[in-house]
């Protein structure tokens, strides 16, 4: 019998405690939490009261480190393909055209002073696929590929989620490709002539700088 009454008593008192808590919050609703970011020194001084932020107008600032939309600064991109290879979800598509020797100046240098050796007709990032893991950013040798803190980039059409960063139009790309073929053909012709002359072919490293070595391919075969 005493348990019966103590049950009722505990029930009533805990319910009253709970109601006191919610009522305290109810009267606390005149105050609102600010929208300071976590890097603000006062962040934990402004947490009392209503904590809703009305999104499009009030935003929690994204920290500068925020890993959201991928952005490629094509000016600095050397077309090394490392990001494409590192990406676990294969959201980066890169097509490269080797720069002919006379075009090197036109192709330019990166801001770090490195000579760019590839035209990039296609550098597509499918941000709908991208899982913002940041691995591509970590392997980028020129730091041109970055995750920007832009968190809201929704689209009505999923095709718009593919971001094109290529620095050549289709016509230009065709022209460059043609040029490369011509140079190649010329070189081969020269080599063939040289061979015909009986000279030992100047066994050069055929590709001047194929930046990412095809090393992992052997490993893949092992699987």
């Amino acid at each position: 019998m005493s348990e019966y009454f103590s049950n009722i008593k505990i029930g009533a008192s805990t319910i009253a405690t709970g109601m006191a808590i919610t009522l305290k919050h109810f009267f606390n609703a005149v105050k609102r939490k600010g929208d300071a970011g976590i890097d603000d020194a006062d962040y934990f001084k402004q947490v009392d009261g209503l904590c809703t932020l009305q999104y499009p107008r009030e935003v929690v600032p994204t920290p500068t480190i925020g890993r959201y939309r991928l952005f490629n600064n094509i000016e600095d991109c050397i077309g090394c393909n490392q990001c494409d290879r590192a990406c676990p979800v294969e959201c980066i598509t890169i097509e490269t055209i080797k720069v002919t020797s006379d075009d090197l100046a036109a192709c330019g240098k990166t801001s770090g002073g490195q000579q760019k050796r590839f035209w990039l007709p296609v550098f597509d990032i499918d941000v709908a696929k991208c899982m913002t893991c940041g691995i591509c950013v970590s392997v980028c040798p020129t730091d041109c590929l970055v995750h920007s803190p832009v968190a809201d980039f929704s689209e009505f059409d999923v095709r718009n989620m593919v971001y094109h960063y290529g620095n050549l139009s289709k016509i230009e790309a065709d022209a460059k490709r043609k040029k490369l073929e011509e140079e190649k053909a010329a070189k081969e012709k020269a080599a063939a002539e040289a061979a015909a002359r009986g000279e030992a072919p100047p066994r050069p490293a055929p590709k001047p700088k194929p930046a990412p070595g095809p090393a992992p391919e052997g490993a893949e075969a092992g699987e």
Binding site: H25, F26, A29, L50, T52
Partner: peptide
């Protein structure tokens, strides 16, 4: 609104 205020929310505002 009442439930929102008890839960530290704003409730309908738009």
């Amino acid at each position: 609104k009442i439930s929102a205020f008890m839960q530290d929310r704003l409730g309908p505002m738009e």
